[in-house]
């Protein structure tokens, strides 16, 4: 009799433990997703500083600066997830173009303010990349948990669904670079 009770108690405890760990993992996935948003917002906040600092030096590049500002306001105004992803990648493109152009302005590159903003921005870019990476790591772990026995039973009972991975919008980023030796 006691043995049966003990077994039931152990099973209940295991059940609670597994359910809690699933909930914890799902929250971690959500938290990782919100991290991406935090970093994207930080990038939006930094861009006016950058444009302001660069304006005085880059008289002939007003097009580049304008495209950044426009991409930023579009990204901030985007409502749906698809629009947002599209606008953010346009912004990323505009930014990388800008940093290529900066190479031609040694005065700007020596400006302390500009260097500080540049460091913050490139760090934010890294943080965006790392938060995506971390999100994918979390999703992988969570999805594995949902699929394997015995936690898949609980996941099925309480309707835990597999989460989607964050895919790169830019397919070119994943393509293998071609090396051409003919020229």
């Amino acid at each position: 009799m006691i043995i049966i009770l003990v077994i039931i108690a152990v099973l209940v405890l295991m059940f609670i433990g597994m359910y809690n760990s699933l909930v914890r993992l799902r929250n971690q996935v959500k938290n990782a997703w919100s991290q991406i948003d935090v970093q994207l917002k930080r990038r939006h906040d930094l861009i006016p500083n950058l444009v302001e600092t660069a304006k005085g030096y880059m008289k002939h590049e007003s097009e580049t600066l304008k495209s950044i500002t426009e991409a930023r306001s579009k990204a901030m105004g985007a409502d749906t997830v698809v629009d947002k992803a599209k606008a953010e990648s346009t912004l990323s493109g505009a930014m990388s173009k800008f940093f290529l152009v900066v190479e031609n302005y040694p005065d700007l590159k020596a400006n302390q303010n500009f260097l500080a903003v540049q460091e913050e921005l490139s760090s934010t870019e890294n943080k965006i990349a790392f938060s995506r990476q971390s999100y994918n790591d979390q999703v992988l772990f969570f999805n594995n948990k949902i699929q394997v026995f015995p936690s898949n039973v609980i996941a099925g009972m309480y309707n835990f669904k597999e989460e989607d991975f964050f895919e790169l919008e830019d397919k070119a980023e994943r393509a293998v670079p071609k090396v051409d030796f003919s020229s």
Binding site: S123, N126, K127, F130, S134
Partner: peptide
Amino acid sequence: NVVQEMKIA
């Protein structure tokens, strides 16, 4: 910043 990046990763 680097510490923050790695904290996120």
